[in-house]
C-alpha cells in the first residue's frame, strides 16, 4: 500500500509517451517520468519518508507538496536543503536524504 503513478493505459486523460529519467537516491537508482519532481519519483517508487528530524530522529517525507513546509528537503548534487516537491528531477541527479542532528540528541 503506497503512493503510485497511475499507469498510462488506465489514465482517463490519455497521456502520450514519456521519456524515463533516472536519479540516484541514497545510492539507489530510481526511475520516473521526465518532468516529475524528485519527491514525486521517490514517492511513486514506494518510499514515503526520506528525512529524519533533527531532535527526535522521526521520519518525514512530503507533507504540503507545494513548497511551503520544507519537510521534504534533500541534498541534490551537493546542494543542501532543496525542496524535493518543487525541484524537477534531471537525469543523473545525485540525491541524498538529510538528517541534521542537534548536539542535544547525544545526551
Amino acid at each position: 500500500m503506497s503512493a503510485r503513478m497511475l499507469p498510462a493505459g488506465s489514465d482517463p486523460i490519455r497521456p502520450g509517451p514519456t521519456a524515463p529519467v533516472t536519479i540516484h537516491v541514497d545510492g539507489e537508482p530510481v526511475t520516473g517520468a521526465a518532468g516529475q519532481t524528485i519527491a514525486g519519483i521517490v514517492l511513486a517508487n514506494g518510499r514515503l519518508a526520506w528525512r529524519r528530524t533533527s531532535s527526535d530522529g522521526r521520519p518525514r517525507g512530503l507533507f504540503c507538496g507545494i513548497g511551503v513546509c520544507f519537510d521534504c528537503i534533500v541534498t541534490v548534487n551537493g546542494d543542501r536543503d532543496v525542496r524535493a516537491c518543487q525541484r524537477r528531477a534531471c537525469d543523473g541527479d545525485v540525491v541524498s536524504s538529510q538528517h541534521d542532528e542537534l548536539p542535544e540528541v547525544h545526551r
Binding site: S2, I13, G61, L62, G65
Partner: peptide
C-alpha cells in the same frame, strides 16, 4: 499528523494534477 502518509489536501491535488501520482491506495 507528523507521520509520513499524512498530507495536506493541496499535496494530494498537486501530485495528482502535476504528476498523475496518487498519494495512496486507500
Amino acid at each position: 499528523w507528523d507521520l509520513p502518509g499524512v498530507f495536506t489536501a493541496g499535496a494530494a491535488q498537486a501530485l495528482a494534477k502535476g504528476e498523475r501520482v496518487a498519494v495512496g491506495e486507500r
